[in-house]
Amino acid sequence: MARSTSKDAQDLFRALWSAYSATPTNLKIIDLYVMYAVFTALIQVVYMAMVGSFPFNSFLSGVLSCVGTAVLAVCLRIQVNKENKEFKDLAPERAFADFVLCNLVLHLVIMNFLG
């Protein structure tokens, strides 16, 4: 049973990998960016667990800045993905402009909240 499960899992990951390698490069860049953000967020959570949550606003803004960046990047990825039929009529340029605006707001708020 366990054997078959792990074999299934192997198959699955192989299939996943092959499917994923088919994605366009610009989406892969976004994915990389998302991974980077999530990783930074995790590091901060670990750091908080060790040091304690004293400057809580700084912690919050640090983590939320990472999570926010990741979420926004995912949104962008959804919108610029050509396979996604929902956003056919949304130009990638428009999507990117929205993304930039959103990020500006996010980082402004973060700057405000950090200190």
């Binding site: 919108q79 929902e86 956003f87």
Partner: peptide, 11 residues
């Protein structure tokens, strides 16, 4: 619409 612009306005 699925637009990030409105999402920003929403927040």
């Amino acid at each position: 619409t699925g637009s990030l612009f409105y999402a920003t306005l929403n927040s």
